[in-house]
Amino acid sequence: MNSSSFVAIDDINKQELLDLLERTRYFEEHPNSKILDGRVVATLFFEPSTRTRLSFETAVNRLGGRVIGFSDASTSSTSKGETLKDTIKMVSNYADIIVMRHFLEGAAQYATEVTDVPIVNAGDGANQHPSQTLLDLYSILKTQGRLEGLVITMVGDLKYGRTVHSLLMAMRHFKPVFNFVSSPELRMPEEYIRLCDREGIEYHEYTDFSKEVIDSSDIIYMTRVQRERFSDIMEYERVKNLYTLRNAMLDGSKPTVRILHPLPRVNEINTDVDDNPKAYYFEQARNGVFARQAILTRALGIDPLKL
């Protein structure tokens, strides 16, 4: 695969993660420059995601680059039956880097095998969404001042939630303590539990989103519990409100705790939390632009710190 691509967080080692976080911090301090002047970035959204696309395109525009692409596969040649390979090869003639989101899992990995142009994965089905992970990590670093030795509580859909899996993979480098809070149907998959065991990472599994868990946390990472994930709809009705965070539940929590959520939220965080200074999910999204500036410049081999 072409080595500068950014496809999965598991491919990134600790040093590279720290380098990306350093870049992210740089871009937060210097969000506007011309370091992508003359560069063409393709954003290929085979599956629409306005939020992620706007974030990437803002990142490019603030660095003076140009954007080409499409926001929906129905307007691209994919709808005429063109293979992904052919689309990637065609776009590779025009762009210096390709940011792609696809509904098929593994699409970005495959794209790296058919082109020499760096690929940035902006989400491939239920599989990977590494730019989300980098912005999550940056949000943790920024709010806590460190990554080492934090108590990270993950709540909601831990089975299908790719953001919590990727966050776990990224945080494993930093001696975390994990609290996994979910209904039994949506518990953290065995492979991640085994990984924690193997790497000597402390973790606790809970079905109760209890005061003790909340009060011990440095980060509370909330996820959406989706109805369609349940085989038994009665079970969904029973658990859907058990993993909702309300403002009063934060009364005894650490002053430094921050609430994260990949957004969009439905009802897993009550709106009465929004004005609490511990709520960080809106600023978290803002960090996404800086994280994506870091990812794009790294993939293009541009070091902003050395310019």
Binding site: T83, K85, E105, G106, A107, Y110, G125
Partner: peptide, 12 residues
């Protein structure tokens, strides 16, 4: 056997 896997949707 994952129907959403790229390998089941591209000639590869």
């Amino acid at each position: 056997t994952n129907p959403k896997c790229i390998t089941n949707n591209e000639p590869m």
